[in-house]
Simulated scan of single mutants.
Amino acid sequence: MSEAPKKRKARRETSESTRQQLLAAAREAFMVGGLEGARVDDIALRAGSNKQLVYHYFGNKDGLYTAVLEQVYQEIREQEAALKLGSLPAEEAMRKLVEFSFDYLRQSPEFVRILVDENIHYGRHLKDAGAVQAVNKPIIDLIAQTLERGVEDGVFRRGLDPLHVYLSIAGMSFFYFANIHTLSYAFSRSLDGKAEMDERRAHIVDFALNAIRNRAPATPST
């Protein structure tokens, strides 16, 4: 490779590295202060960069916020895809998905906080995130295929809407982690310890699978 292409490659790599550093710093800032509380100066300082580069790469703070939203959605979907649910028996696949949904939120508090903040803004930044719908569609398609396989195998009941199944699975875990501190105070029961989280996880898995299982009709008494 001649000197000029080497320099262009190095500049591209430096540019991408700077962009990723800004995204990481912004993600932390948005998790702590939300869109309104985060400051471009602070994000640039966290990234060890110049705030003018925020405007260069992302246009403005809203553009940076949209990029963070795209990133967090991309990450969870990539990890879901890595589960290879399509290669598992239907019930095992759904169990693994429910477990993953809980575990991911448990390990990624920034995902919960950033999405809660975006809902405060009525999801307006996602309207500008063209990739988000394309990134999220495969999980609904996968659930639809898994439910269909489960019906064919006789383990899942018919008539389940894959989107509603996903919303129920995600919602049970998301509500728990988004409200864990207020719920602990409201019901005078700590919910943020390991044992409590393990108990909640087991409950959600059992609850979700029982909701979609096929129940053979009871045999009439003679």
Rank of each mutant, 00 (worst) to 15 (best):
L147K: 12
N136Y: 06
S173Y: 00
F177D: 00
I169S: 04
A82Q: 10
E99V: 01
R27E: 15
H203W: 08
P162C: 12
L115R: 08
I114V: 14
L163S: 09
I139L: 13
L183P: 06
Y57V: 10
Q71Y: 02
A10L: 15
S17P: 01
T66L: 14
R149H: 09
K6V: 07
I143K: 00
G63V: 06
V32P: 00
S221I: 10
E70I: 06
R200K: 04
E118K: 08
A93C: 06
L35G: 06
G130D: 14
N50S: 10
T18C: 08
F207L: 05
A81T: 09
G59L: 11
P220Q: 12
E3T: 06
E80A: 02
K7R: 13
L163D: 06
F177L: 00
S101T: 13
K61W: 14
E80Y: 00
A10M: 11
E196T: 04
I120M: 12
D153S: 13
S221V: 10
K96E: 12
Q133G: 12
L22W: 11
K61V: 10
V205R: 02
A186S: 15
I143L: 06
D141A: 11
H125Y: 09
F111H: 09
E110H: 10
I76G: 01
E91A: 07
G193L: 05
L209I: 09
Q71A: 09
R27S: 08
A208C: 15
F174W: 11
F177A: 00
Q74D: 09
Q145E: 13
F58G: 14
V151F: 03
K7V: 06
S173V: 00
L35W: 02
L22M: 11
F100D: 00
A178S: 15
E78I: 04
I140R: 00
A47R: 14
L115N: 13
A29I: 04
F156R: 02
Y65D: 03
Y166F: 15
E3Q: 04
L115V: 03
A170I: 01
F177H: 00
A90S: 14
Q21P: 02
I43A: 13
P217T: 10
N136L: 15
N50F: 08
Y166P: 01
V116P: 02
Q20A: 09
A208L: 04
S173I: 00
A82G: 02
D117V: 04
L53S: 06
Q79E: 13
M1T: 07
E92G: 01
L163E: 13
I140E: 01
Q133K: 10
L45G: 03
A218K: 12
G59V: 10
Y122T: 04
K137Y: 11
G34I: 06
A131D: 04
L88E: 12
N214S: 14
Q74Y: 01
